[in-house]
């Protein structure tokens, strides 16, 4: 499992690996927002947490279809399926590598982009905390969606359609935590709920992902 994780990380930083694409996308979306809604701080400050969360979510979505598609095309997936590591482990490793290459950089950069949106000073730490807790869930849910659509031509759009509704609870609680952090009310409840979603996803979704992979490899 560690070997698979390391290989995927190595592939992502090699040529054509797509590392940083999500990050660039995140940056562009966030920078575009003020052009759309106007430079007024009165507008930007309250919407900053939501914009950052939605942009992070879309950036994570962007790279989901690569999770299994490349391994499917070059035939690695059936070889992994007959290897001694369980497919559940493959699913978990794929989700973790997606998080490291996409979710983690997004989490680190998000507070920086908060400046561009005039985010309330109290919100930065909670933005970091909520993304740190919530981004792994986005990767795991996305891995599940990628497993459902792995064999399909033009599966990318379908993947977004399937995954977006599943992202809603994480997004709601995550952005809510930042908003509450911004106006100084209690952030514990939404943060804990984000954490619960992440834990629940990592406990259950590897099995669903492996089941979907087995069906698709048949």
């Amino acid at each position: 499992m560690i070997a698979l994780l390391l290989r995927d990380l190595r592939l992502s930083v090699r040529a054509g690996g797509g590392f940083g694409l999500g990050l660039a996308f995140f940056l562009i979306v966030v920078v575009l927002v003020p052009f759309g809604v106007g430079p007024d701080r009165v507008i930007l400050t309250p919407i900053a947490p939501g914009i950052l969360w939605v942009a992070a979510l879309l950036a994570a979505l962007l790279s989901l279809d690569r999770i299994f598609a490349l391994d499917f095309e070059d035939g690695s997936l059936p070889l992994l399926a007959t290897a001694p590591i369980p497919l559940e482990g493959v699913a978990l490793s794929k989700a973790v590598s997606h998080w490291i290459t996409t979710g983690l950089p997004l989490t680190c950069v998000a507070p920086l982009l908060g400046f561009f949106l005039n985010m309330a000073p109290g919100a930065y730490v909670w933005l970091l905390a909520s993304l740190a807790l919530g981004a792994p869930a986005l990767s795991m849910i996305g891995t599940f969606g990628a497993a459902l659509t792995v064999g399909l031509r033009r599966g990318g759009l379908l993947l977004s359609l399937l995954v977006l509704p599943l992202y809603i609870p994480t997004l709601m609680f995550g952005a809510e935590a930042v908003r509450r952090g911004a106006d100084g009310s209690g952030v514990t409840a939404p943060l804990m709920l984000v954490g619960v979603i992440t834990l629940g996803c990592f406990a259950l979704l590897p099995f669903a992902t492996a089941a979907a992979l087995r069906i698709n490899l048949r």
């Binding site: 459902l148 509704p165 599943l166 809603i168 609680f173 409840a189 259950l204 089941a211």
Partner: peptide, 26 residues
Amino acid sequence: TAADLTAVLCIVGSIFAILSRYAVRF
């Protein structure tokens, strides 16, 4: 294959649908 995959989606989706319902109230 379609029946299997949609069944998996329906089962997982149901959990998230319930979760969404509580999230929305919150």
